[in-house]
């Protein structure tokens, strides 16, 4: 078996052209179903939260699989499924330029205003 090794970052899901993931070489079977990311809303009014991922042949099956895998203990009332290859993730190597510049800009926090007493719940 020919093994191509490629480094993956968290959230960077192998597409068709990508090499094999080191951690899970079995995924590379070309008959394997695509991977889907599942988001579950636990209650009316709350956000959908990422619950995990699973394999399914199409979107309808992804939602049914999610129903069977992630809501069997009444965890949710609504399901979103997104094919994992459609998710783009930031690169951890960019962390320095992406996130560190914000660390000394505390004026971006709205902590420098005098709030009138009448305003509650801020």
């Amino acid at each position: 078996m020919k093994i191509k090794i490629k480094k993956f970052y968290y959230g960077d899901i192998p597409g068709d052209e990508a090499g094999e993931s080191i951690a899970s070489p079995t995924i590379t079977n070309d008959k394997a179903w695509p991977l889907w990311e599942i988001f579950i809303r636990s209650k009316q009014g709350l956000d959908h939260k990422h619950a995990g991922s699973l394999h399914a042949a199409d979107a309808a099956m992804a939602i049914e699989n999610a129903r069977d895998v992630y809501t069997r203990r009444q965890e949710g009332i609504s399901i979103w499924a997104v094919e994992s290859k459609n998710i783009h993730a930031s690169n951890p190597d960019d962390a320095e330029s992406f996130y560190e510049p914000a660390s000394d800009k505390i004026y971006r926090h709205p902590g420098f205003y005098q709030l009138p007493d009448e305003i509650k719940h801020m």
Binding site: H55, N65, D68
Partner: peptide, 11 residues
């Protein structure tokens, strides 16, 4: 045949 369907039939 696949983990997710294994769970489905078991449910």
């Amino acid at each position: 045949p696949i983990l997710e369907q294994d769970i489905a039939i078991t449910n």
